[in-house]
Amino acid sequence: MDSIEGLAPAVASILDAARARPTPDERVAVTPRDLRAAFARAESDGRVPVIAEVKPTSPTTEGTDERDPVELAREMVDGGAAALSVLTEPEHFGGSVETLRRVREAVDVPVLRKDFLLEESHLDAVEADVVLLIVRFVDDLPGMLAAARDRGFQVLVEVHDEAELERALDAGADVVGVNNRDLANLVVNLETFESVAPHVPDDVTLVAESGIALPAEAARMRRAGADALLVGTGIVRGPSDVTENTRRLTTSMTQ
């Protein structure tokens, strides 16, 4: 893992908690729902492919969302979400593997497990369709990528700059997310995606993450090359109900 020096204290605390978390004894095996196919279906229906995120709280939001995560997930799908992201990190995001299980049973779209996975055993906590690997925090990215795929997972590999993108591509990533949030200070800048996107090969599926709340921001990321968008706070804490907040973003290029 890269040095945690320079990370926001909240992020360093999250990593400490991840390292201390008990690891499962049994290995999972998954038959996943196809993420890329879900994006293609959204495109063919005239929708922007959106991964909508069920996130009770985070270090950058105030309070905790007490609504039923399963109901939120259904509302997101009703609003046109192509896939869902569910936080399973418990200490800082209020997530759980049980929430992911409940959500995945309730919907028919791919579900991403959003967590800080640092070692192979962390993959075995719960079945999901997609797992997140954050380049900065994984020592052996090729090994983790292979281990995830061997279990049946699809993998979203998250990067923050061009150097991390190179590591992701060298490891064999075929779905890459560019996070607009700087982990050093937790500030969001959409120019992050715009600076990295031109270096992503055409055959790699590219996801823009963080800082997307308005249709104009969604359209901006799409113009910069995003095949899909990952949106959390902009949907669950937007100006309307969750279904309408999702719909506003999935139709952002057609308004």
Rank of each mutant, 00 (worst) to 15 (best):
E120P: 00
G225C: 03
P198R: 09
T192C: 02
D161P: 02
E166F: 09
F193H: 08
P215T: 11
N189E: 15
L229G: 05
A173M: 07
M221P: 06
R220I: 08
V131I: 13
L156C: 08
A128S: 13
E217V: 10
E158A: 11
D174T: 10
L165H: 12
A184R: 15
L230T: 03
Q154Y: 04
M221Y: 14
V131Q: 03
E191M: 14
E194I: 08
L141Y: 00
A224T: 03
D161R: 04
V188F: 14
L190K: 05
G238R: 14
D203V: 09
V200Q: 07
S240P: 10
E209V: 03
M144K: 00
L206R: 04
V236K: 13
D170E: 02
G211H: 10
A184Y: 15
E209C: 06
L118Y: 14
A171T: 05
E164D: 12
A228L: 07
T233Q: 13
R222F: 14
D161T: 11
H160Q: 15
M144L: 09
A213E: 05
R220E: 13
S210F: 04
D182Y: 14
D150H: 03
R223G: 12
N180M: 13
A219T: 04
V130C: 01
V155E: 00
G211S: 13
G143D: 07
G238P: 13
V236G: 11
V126P: 00
L183I: 05
A168I: 02
A213G: 11
E127Q: 15
A128G: 07
S195K: 09
G234A: 13
S240M: 15
L169G: 04
R167Y: 07
A146P: 00
P198T: 05
V155I: 01
L123G: 00
V200D: 06
V126T: 06
F137I: 06
A147Y: 01
E162L: 12
A173K: 00
E209G: 01
N179G: 05
V231R: 09
E158M: 10
D150K: 02
L145R: 03
G152F: 04
V200W: 10
V207W: 00
M221I: 08
S121Q: 08
L145F: 03
D129Q: 08
V236N: 08
V138Y: 02
G172M: 05
V236S: 04
D203W: 09
D129G: 12
A128H: 06
V157Y: 05
R136M: 05
D202N: 14
A125E: 10
G152H: 05
G225P: 01
N179Y: 13
F137N: 06
H160Y: 14
L156M: 05
V135Q: 11
E191F: 15
R222D: 06
G232K: 11
L123C: 02
R237A: 12
D203E: 10
V236H: 15
D139I: 06
R151H: 07
A228R: 12
E209W: 09
V131Y: 07
L156N: 00
G234M: 02
V231G: 03
V157H: 00
G211M: 13
R167L: 12
D124K: 02
A224K: 08
P215W: 14
S240K: 15
R149Q: 03
P142I: 02
V176F: 12
A228W: 02
I134M: 13
L206F: 07
L165K: 07
T205C: 11
A216P: 08
L133Q: 02
F153S: 04
H199E: 06
L186Y: 08
